[in-house]
Simulated assay, not measured.
Amino acid sequence: MADIAAPALNLTPPAPAPMSAAEMAKRGQIAKTAKDFESSFLSVMLGQMMKDVKVSEPFSGGQGEDAFKSFMNEAMAKQVVKSGGLGIADDVAKEMLKLQGLS
């Protein structure tokens, strides 16, 4: 019997089409908006978690403590998102890209 060689298969996916500057800018804005949404969501969650936390004297923040809790929650939420977040931003960005026809 003669040796029969199988045709070579090209399993490499085709290279994606280059993005225009406008599309790259839109994708960047969508990513930023998704991260901002995740940060806002986390800030609200942290606010609900911390609303009944009271620290006793002498370590309490006094009368200004309640006024500045929201700033602390916002800062913590931004840091969590900056460190990788919970993955909410990724899902939100995917849905936003689909809505814009960029998926």
Rank of each mutant, 00 (worst) to 15 (best):
A8Q: 13
M50S: 12
E23S: 14
A89Q: 07
M45P: 00
S70P: 00
V53T: 06
M72H: 09
Q63A: 14
L99G: 04
A31L: 07
F59S: 07
I88L: 08
E38K: 03
S43M: 09
D91M: 11
A89I: 02
G64Q: 08
P13K: 11
L97I: 00
L99I: 01
P7W: 07
A31M: 07
S56T: 08
D66Q: 14
A31S: 14
A15Y: 02
N73Q: 06
E23M: 13
D66E: 10
P13A: 10
M72K: 09
A22Q: 13
F71Y: 13
S60H: 09
A8P: 08
A21S: 13
P58S: 08
A22H: 04
K35D: 14
K26M: 09
L11C: 09
S83V: 00
A75E: 09
R27F: 04
A25K: 15
A6W: 07
P18Y: 05
P14Q: 14
E74H: 04
L99F: 04
K69M: 09
A75P: 03
Q100V: 00
I88T: 08
A6N: 11
G85T: 04
S40D: 15
M1R: 12
G28D: 01
K78G: 07
M1N: 14
M50L: 13
M50P: 06
E23F: 05
K35G: 10
S70L: 00
K69P: 08
K32G: 03
R27G: 12
K32E: 04
S40N: 12
L9G: 08
P7Q: 15
T33C: 05
K35Q: 15
A15S: 13
K35C: 11
A17I: 08
V53N: 08
A67N: 04
S40C: 05
A25V: 03
A21E: 10
M49T: 11
